[in-house]
Computed example of a mutant assay.
Amino acid sequence: MHYSMNIQKLAAMKNKQVTYQNIGKKGYKETWDYQDELFQAIIQTKMDNRRNETTTPTKNHFLFVEHPHVYTLGKSGDLSNLLLTEKQLTEKNATFYKSNRGGDITYHGPGQIVGYPIIDLDNFFTDIHKYLRFLEEAVILTLADYGLKSERSKGETGVWLDVGTPFARKICALGVRSSRWVTMHGFALNVNVDLGYFDNIIPCGIKGKAVTSMEAELGEKININEVQQTILKHLASLFEWELVSV
């Protein structure tokens, strides 16, 4: 009976609702701080539930943002993959941050869609591998809606075109953090981004691989808002999110 009651309590705690915000153009550090605030609040709820034997549902959030020029290095990344000095960063109107996400170095900037899910995987499934594959799948399905065939590359997180050929190129990077099954950070899809900024790094620490964008592949500027809505549709379907906009 006690076991049955615990199962019922766990089921009652699952919250499939995800609060969605498009926060527009915002600095990396400011957005990171906001993510962390949401992230810590979810963790605190989980800790309080465990301590007090309560069943307060945890919240889930999803943010879309567009960052000014910035290079970020994951916690296990190699600083030598940044090919600019501090002076050169300033000249390019770019900033640099060491992040607590996974992955190596990447670039964020105007014309790029950055998505940050801050969700409690206990509300959905507790499998980080599956979580990453779902993020990739949402991007793959979105690109297919625009006539682009993309796929995964074995051992290389993210979304790629022409995998296994000399023309392999990355169109979306992933880097996440998870603690107590709560996630933060996320993915960056190149839509109308200035690809020249990737020349200043070894993207994701992978030498000899090119980077591309939807604009470069399709030969025209793409409506970012439409791409965001398409990604959101696929994320909601894959994860079974109940989206609520702010």
Results as ranks from 00 to 15, higher is better:
P166N: 01
N49Y: 06
G196A: 13
D145T: 09
E240F: 01
E136S: 01
T56C: 00
F167V: 08
T165I: 12
R133L: 05
G158V: 03
Q228D: 03
M214N: 12
E220C: 10
Q229T: 08
L174W: 04
T31R: 06
S178G: 01
W181L: 02
K14E: 07
F39K: 09
H234A: 05
I224T: 02
G205C: 10
K98G: 11
Y3R: 12
R101F: 01
A144M: 06
L82P: 08
A236M: 04
K98P: 13
F124A: 04
A216W: 09
H69A: 06
S99G: 06
N192I: 03
T31E: 04
V193D: 03
A11M: 13
K75E: 00
V244Y: 08
Q17R: 10
S153K: 13
E151N: 15
G109I: 00
I118W: 04
G219P: 13
I128S: 13
H67V: 02
A188P: 14
L79D: 13
T126I: 11
E220Q: 14
G74V: 13
L83S: 06
I118Q: 03
N223Q: 09
K209I: 06
V163D: 11
T19F: 07
Q8I: 07
G164N: 02
A11Y: 10
S245C: 12
E215N: 15
W241P: 02
I224C: 03
S237Q: 14
W160L: 02
I118P: 03
G205H: 06
C172D: 13
M13C: 14
E215W: 08
Y131W: 01
L89T: 10
K59F: 02
K75T: 08
L132G: 12
G186S: 01
E215P: 14
D33H: 15
F39D: 06
K29V: 09
Y107N: 14
L189I: 12
K29S: 12
